[in-house]
């Protein structure tokens, strides 16, 4: 149970970072932390006590294997996260070019 709560703590740290910080780069870091907290949670869901890695190998009888499906899901979700991170970093660089600052309180050409 403890590890799940640590996941939640990590997610909360990411969420706090996203909502409370004023620097764009810190917001992006918060997004990444929250994302990895969710990924960690999914991997932990598939864990089985004393389980071993789900790798099928020759000449080996595997008795107790952790659930391989969450690991496949996490791999996919990491790839998606990579795409989003690359895009958001590009956008952040462009924002710096236009506004000359990373401070979101000074990036306010839009009203709402």
């Amino acid at each position: 149970m403890g590890v799940y709560i640590l996941c939640l703590v990590l997610f909360s740290v990411g969420l706090y970072c996203m909502l409370r910080k004023r620097n764009i780069i810190k917001i992006i870091i918060g997004l990444i932390i929250a994302e990895y907290a969710v990924n960690l949670f999914i991997v932990l869901l598939g864990y089985r006590m004393e389980g071993r890695a789900p790798i099928y190998a020759a000449n080996q009888e595997i008795l107790n294997m952790v659930d391989p499906l969450p690991q496949a899901l996490v791999l996919t979700s990491i790839v998606i996260g990579l795409a989003i991170t690359a895009l958001v970093v590009g956008i952040a660089m462009r924002i710096y070019e236009r506004y000359g600052t990373f401070d979101i309180t000074r990036i306010n050409k839009l009203k709402g």
């Binding site: 996203m18 764009i24 997004l31 929250a34 958001v88 236009r98 990036i107 306010n108 050409k109």
Partner: peptide, 21 residues
């Protein structure tokens, strides 16, 4: 890639990624 578009896109990206999470 005008200033307003980038700002809107950044806001949209952060909010929507949170939704995806």
């Amino acid at each position: 890639t005008e200033a307003e578009e980038l700002e809107a896109s950044f806001k949209y990206l952060i909010m929507s990624s949170l939704g995806s999470l």
